[in-house]
Write a protein that binds this DNA or RNA. Structure first.
Lengths: 335, 335
DNA sequence: ATAGGATGTCGAAGCGCTTCGACAGCGAGT
DNA sequence: ACTCGCTGTCGAAGCGCTTCGACATCCTAT
């Protein structure tokens, strides 16, 4: 294993000079720099991460806490994780993957051990037990998702309230008066996941404003659960002509069931999905949808974090504006 | 930040004693140990990761390289990643998330800097450019997936050859004589991803043995691509009664299309899927399938790695035996 | 009674790096 | 000619931990 000292000797300079070449924290003459860089290349030198962390008390690692659960949005989580990892790399950081399993202890461990310089939390509950810790530590953090109380925290998320409003807006403007919302699994609502509730708020308030009737039903993924849910909805509100779906694994089952019942999309009923772009495009009907901008969220979170690490940038909530793309699943309401 | 020295002082012992309490590498009297542990708890001490890594030249971190691409098996990747992370934690290790983006350089960087003690590589190509590096370094590694030449490497994977054979076997035993294979996207075959080709080998050789005709067609995910592919298949081989699907995002489109054409499953045609359990269960028809045991693969990989880190355990290939679960999508061939 | 082996604890030497203060050398301003 | 202030380089201290050899105690076997 090549060390700094060996590089220094090879280049005929002192260790500190090599260090300054590497960090750029002091000016170095061009000739010296080139000589050192040459030696680094020839010897295949890589700075030792542990030594570096010890001496500088910065690990150049950020921790990413992902949910252990896989009952929702798996591809979204994955996409965010990948975006975080690649964006972090462009800033010279690596990413440590933590699962939610350890809960608040993970936060303590990482903060206490100096393993990571900062952290990104995904799948934040409205009243998340990790939040008090984050507020107390001086370690920078960014949440992907919005808790109930965001004071003293930096958060990045899609504006789900606006998303909900946008969906109702679209259907209402097409003349739909009875709209059913097919939501995430009941468990998601039970543990008060922010985005689900905020979407609901947006849906409801815009429904009120536009005088549209709304029926919200949580739904486990899959064909069978969807069949039961749909039957109930049509039983309670036979005149339903618009659907908003916020549950990836209910999308295709819903379309299949509608087809099977002879309800044509978009002639008889309209469907708006809140889902990743790919799902909307690959579905059996190209879906009018509001995309969940996973990459953008991951990227944003890292950028915020870097700003905090450089002590520019303050606590604030970044809400990404939703965009509704009209495709082939929505049309004027039949009357 | 609390240090070892502070704990030592608080407990009235030397720093080395505290260290030995922590590591258990030398015997410590019960009274001393308890006193030290008490101090650790009271002060909320967490060993500094960097210092530890520097002094011991072990970081207690394993690197996990995941594919950057998200054109296949996203949930599987995610599940593996989570299984790796949680299993690693039970061994006192954390997981560093690397994307394939950096390619072989990532291997060099991690090895050279001592950032991680070992690594797990996913999405291994048959002739992966990272392999020579792995063979040369003394850093332990485990591959999830099988390259062409496994000498000097430890690999964990589902036995895809046996998987392919099993699928044909099942359909053949039900009397199907014409089987179509709907595969991954063409790009997956073009970059010679091992599992896809090995599945094909298994399918073909068993087809030969059982005298069954096989037609293999790669397929992009989604409804439209599937429609085109299916039309071609039925054009070339109108008598096809059995399908093997190895492409998550083609499963539901296939079922929808078959339904639409009036081909009942399983009465008219049978479908076997190679996919995660969840997909098979949640599909519109409960699918006979060979499960991709993501968790098991992740767990296995970590266990192997730990064995190598303790210098028990040798290079070897662990192939997980496939299991076919019969559900509602396969039945006797119509004649 | 005494050597000899356990057993438990300590001091000190690093691990490879960053960073601070010191300082040599040089051109510019008086 | 002399001082002043740069610029570029160096030496040394120290980050918080592990680990090795040394050593003091105590118990057991002779």
């Amino acid at each position: 294993m090549v060390t700094l000292a060996e590089v220094a000797q090879h280049a005929g300079v002192s260790a500190s000079t090599v260090s300054y070449v590497l960090s750029g924290k002091r000016s170095i003459s061009t000739t010296t720099r080139q000589r050192v860089e040459q030696s680094i290349r020839e010897l295949g030198y890589h700075p030792n991460a542990g030594a570096r962390a010890l001496a500088s008390s910065r690990s150049n690692i950020i921790a990413l806490m992902i949910p252990l659960r896989t009952d929702m949005y798996v591809p979204v989580m994955m996409e965010i994780a990948i975006a975080v990892a690649t964006t972090a790399r462009t800033h010279g950081y690596d990413v440590l993957l933590l699962t939610g399993e350890e809960g608040p202890d993970a936060v303590r461990r990482v903060t206490g051990s100096g393993l990571a310089d900062a952290m990104i939390l995904m799948d934040v509950q409205l009243d998340d037990e990790r939040l008090p810790l984050l507020r107390h530590t001086d370690q920078p953090s960014v949440l992907i998702g919005l808790p109930a109380d965001t004071s003293g925290l930096t958060c990045v998320d899609l504006d789900f309230t606006a998303t909900g409003a946008l969906c109702v807006e679209h259907l209402a403007s097409l003349g739909h008066r009875d709209i059913a919302v097919i939501g995430e699994a009941p468990a998601v609502y039970e543990r008060h996941t922010g985005f689900a509730e905020r979407t609901l708020d947006g849906l409801r308030s815009r429904a009120r404003e536009t005088g549209v009737r709304l029926l919200h039903r949580p739904c486990e993924g899959g064909y069978d659960a969807m069949a039961v849910t749909l039957a109930r909805i049509l039983d309670e509100r036979p005149g339903t002509t618009g659907f908003v779906v916020q549950n990836e694994s209910a999308v295709e089952p819903l379309l299949a069931l509608l087809r099977q019942q002879g309800r044509a999309v978009p002639e008889d009923v309209s469907v708006v999905a809140i889902c990743p772009e790919q799902v909307a495009v690959q579905a059996s009907v190209r879906l009018t949808s509001v995309a969940i901008p996973a990459q953008e969220m991951g990227r944003h979170a890292v950028e915020r974090l870097m700003a905090k690490l450089d002590s520019r940038g303050t606590d604030e909530v970044v809400l990404i504006e939703p965009e509704l793309t009209v495709r082939a699943s929505t049309g004027p309401a039949a009357h």
